[in-house]
Nucleic acid binder design. Structure first.
Lengths: 122, 122
DNA sequence: CATCTGTACTAGATGTGTTAATACAGTTAT
DNA sequence: ATAACTGTATTAACACATCTAGTACAGATG
């Protein structure tokens, strides 16, 4: 379900956070569904429960998950995602597009990239 | 010329690296121009020369700068940038677009964002 | 009641980032 | 040639984030 890379300097809790976020936005974990429990996920990934908890806290702060004490954590709806997250994404997007432009990538290529994405979603 | 943020957990050498890269891709530092020397930049930013050196090494590895021993470091041409960097950018771009799609952002909005960029460049 | 859930706290090991001081080799200008 | 600049390399030390480990508590569930 999730893949970790211990060599690559990125913190484990970030890898878990990003991995779960990706599972949510791709629909692998549908909105409202239960996320794996802290203990079960830490067991299957062979890491400390505290690290998972930290990833869940981050996801909750972003709005991608919500928690019910005693029941578990669940995937949230797109409308629950914090506005900060959208702004952050647009900010990063602009920086990337700007750099790609410097590298000679034409707007047509980018447009084609999104067109392809539209097809895949159908 | 460059702004550092000591609170925000990002390493200083990454901030210097990203800041210089941005100055290069925006044309503030034209291709071929000399970058500030390790010692002068470390002086004006009030940080250790080793930290600057680390940032320069990273930029050189990306292809955004090249070094002539005894002379200094210089901004490279877009064509010198490593292919790895392009792939990395496209990879990040796809992830961001995918997440924005999940958040309900229509392809039209993205297209409009690039159209705006085209206008600014003229 | 037993077992699951998330949460909180302390303590310690490890690695990264950063500073500091020093040194060496090549370039440039006087 | 001499002085002053350039990048590069090395070592030591410190601060801090990450991660692990162990333990504990409260709410939900069967």
């Amino acid at each position: 379900m999730l893949q970790l890379n211990f060599r690559d300097g990125r913190p484990i809790y970030e890898q878990v956070r990003d991995g779960l976020r990706k599972l949510i936005i791709t629909g692998v974990i549908p909105a409202g569904d239960k996320l794996p429990s802290v203990r079960s996920l830490s067991g299957s990934l062979a890491i400390n429960p505290n690290t998972i908890q930290r990833a869940y806290e981050a996801l909750e702060q972003e709005g991608y998950a919500y928690t019910v004490a005693g029941k578990g954590s669940f995937a949230a709806l797109p409308s629950d995602v914090r506005e900060d997250r959208r702004r952050e994404l647009f900010f990063k997007l602009d920086a990337i597009v700007q750099e790609l432009a410097f590298l000679g990538v034409k707007p047509d290529e980018l447009a084609a990239r999104f067109a392809r994405r539209e097809e895949e979603e159908q």
